[in-house]
Amino acid sequence: MYAFEFERPGSLDAAVKALQEEDAQALGGGQTLIPTLKQRLAMPSKLVSLKGIAELQGIAQEGDVLKVGGGSTHGAVARETKGIFAGLSLMASKIGDPAVRNRGTMGGSLANNDPAACYPAALMATRGTVVTNTREIAAEEYFQGLFTTALEEGEIITSIRFPLPEKSNYQKFEQPASRFPLVGVFVAKYGDRVGVGVTGASEDGVFAWKEAEEALAGNFAPEAVDDLWVSAEGMMSDLHGTAEYRAHLVKVMTKRAVAAAE
């Protein structure tokens, strides 16, 4: 990696200030950034670690909303949302391996917005909110395509707010090499609506499968999507699966998530 300065601020304000320097880069768990640096594919002047900021920590239920601090590791999410938000706990427990889960953070993952990341599916299905140091951003506005979000330069995700569903589940069909989702589907059932968030599949990144959401709102059962069809147009196609295969898997994984929702 190229040489860089390293700063570990103790407060959000200090972090915001540190990030004002040109080419400064926020560092969450480093699960994407560090390998990128090692390959010399990025050349930040300064890394600003968010690990020492108390405001980014903590996972708590606030009424019918779950608030997850942006600096929460996947391991913490998996442990601490068990019994509160089954689908999210399950999702977090299957990201990477224990080493990844003990370093990687939800804020880092959402800020990076890898098209095959898991969390975007949960945020989209729940129509959750990304809270930053300056504002709140609704899921549908937040995601803007592959590796692209509504975040401004230097803006830091402080927490993520998920409306708690009655039932939820996440089904990940793994890409054989990376074990990221080739297709991942998160289903969240509320009293009056159902959310279906799909990751890994589309060329535009995470999306809500709205036809399925409507069908499932009327009948929360796997058969409800039997007559729906997902178009292969706009789906990613690579070594590990064609667009048609991914489109097919969206439906299969949706049905499985509905069947397994708890």
Binding site: P176, A177, S178, L239
Partner: peptide, 24 residues
């Protein structure tokens, strides 16, 4: 049998140059 494959594209670029694409 099930996972590994080293694949080049038609220009000779290795498509499976990391464990993100080469399945062990």
């Amino acid at each position: 049998a099930l996972l590994e494959s080293c694949v080049y594209d038609e220009t000779g670029q290795l498509l499976t140059g990391t464990y993100m694409d080469y399945a062990m």
